[in-house]
Design a protein around this nucleic acid. Structure first.
Lengths: 241, 241
DNA sequence: TCAAAAAATGACTGAAAGTCAGAAATGGGA
DNA sequence: TCCCATTTCTGACTTTCAGTCATTTTTTGA
């Protein structure tokens, strides 16, 4: 019975197409201007059909968050397989995070929106919410793992509690991201432009500050600066566009 | 001509009373549930009158942000007058910030909401927006000032650029605040509770991490831990409720 | 006491989320 | 090929809420 399978596939495609329409609209006009009539129009279906695929607007935004956090999570988890020190893994996760937000402003907006949701009925009954939480927790555990590896190879100071340190890195990196990409959401209070500091400088400064605070006894790791330059060169040689 | 003055005073009072109603509603139900009919009802005036005092809902929220940032700004600026080292000033500003958010969840919600605004007509034409930006910039400059003081008294490493360091402290502390008080907005992904780490521990950990990264050559300042304990004891003796 | 000015009102408009009765398309059996 | 049951889709309709404005009420000063 291949018909059922075909139907399933078509359903998934339509669902994905609605999500893509919503993403494009978020990119163009911002999330606060997202409008279900427009999502329907851009997907070339009626409004009612949108509601066959997503329970409500919140559900649709959470589906985008799910997609975003899955993508981010894959990138983060992959870092653990690289043959580098724990500290360098932490650096690499930071680079990935900043790149992700830079490449996908619409995902950043969706996730910021999600973090402002209160636990309403709509949020609690969305099947996507659980997936988002799982993805985040997995990324967080990858961070803890990188820290543990770093403590074993001597690149990270092992007097910290790995969970607590991961929590601090998570929190501070999100703060840096929010300030660095404030212009993606709002231009008021654009500290970076006001101070004439560019994104890379800020990010390097953050890594240096954090690096100083967490560095272990093994001094052969090199600092973030040199690691960063190597990575950038690697990427340029991989994608010479 | 005391009538005009009286009218001005009454206007200001009514304006303040509308703001208070909105704050209470934000505290009770969250900002996404804030509704202008309810604001009017709670203020015991008609909806139309609310719109005589505030151009629109955005304007009202920005008025709350103005009030909040003014309050925070006063606290921050006052730190500069204390007879402590620059590093201790930075610590104290952090303590004030965390206390502020803890005491005023409604203000935190309003400001988070503001940071998600895009620069629409409504935002640009609100007289409160400019005030908010000014308040923030003033707080930021106070932070820069504290860092400069710290570099002079040897409590802060003077190889950093003061502006860049202030930017990093601003960004990271906001990140820590957002994670620490995520439950004020949303309970999903409540990292603190998941890991069984309490707010004070996280905050101390943050200050330790940062402190390590920025500490200067003068080692007589004492660490954050001891500074924090002193401050807490001071406050307890000042307000023995 | 009264009329002009100021302040307040609430019914109304418009926009957008969400619903649902009916229309259209699909698919298996005769 | 036709039929009809099931699935899928539609868009007019309902509801909610921001924002408006013609009208009413209150205040003021003469």
């Amino acid at each position: 019975m291949g018909i059922l399978e075909r139907k399933e596939r078509e359903k998934a495609q339509k669902r994905a197409s609605i999500i893509e329409s919503a993403e494009a609209l978020i990119l163009e006009k911002g999330l606060d201007q997202l409008n279900m009539d427009q999502v329907a129009e851009r997907s070339e279906i009626s409004k009612g059909t949108v509601y066959l695929y997503f329970k409500n607007k919140t559900d649709l935004v959470l589906a985008i968050c799910d997609k975003a956090s899955t993508l981010m999570n894959e990138k983060t988890s992959k870092v653990l397989t690289q043959n580098i020190t724990g500290l360098q893994m932490v650096y690499q996760m930071g680079i990935n995070f900043i790149e992700f937000v830079s490449e996908h402003p619409e995902y950043n907006r969706a996730i910021r929106f999600m973090d402002n949701f209160r636990n309403t009925e709509q949020v609690l009954t969305s099947e996507y919410m659980g997936a988002c939480i799982q993805n985040r927790q997995e990324s967080f555990r990858a961070m803890v793992r990188a820290i543990q590896i770093g403590m074993q190879d001597g690149s990270i100071n092992d007097t910290y509690d790995p969970n607590q340190l991961a929590l601090l890195l998570w929190a501070t990196s999100h703060g840096v991201k929010d300030v660095a990409y404030m212009h993606q959401n709002a231009d008021h209070f654009n500290l970076l432009d006001n101070l004439g500091i560019d994104l890379t400088t800020m990010f390097k400064g953050y890594m240096k500050l954090i690096g100083e605070g967490i560095k272990g006894t093994n001094k052969t790791n090199g600092d973030f600066e040199s690691f960063f330059e190597t990575q950038i060169q690697l990427e340029r040689s991989e994608r010479p566009d």
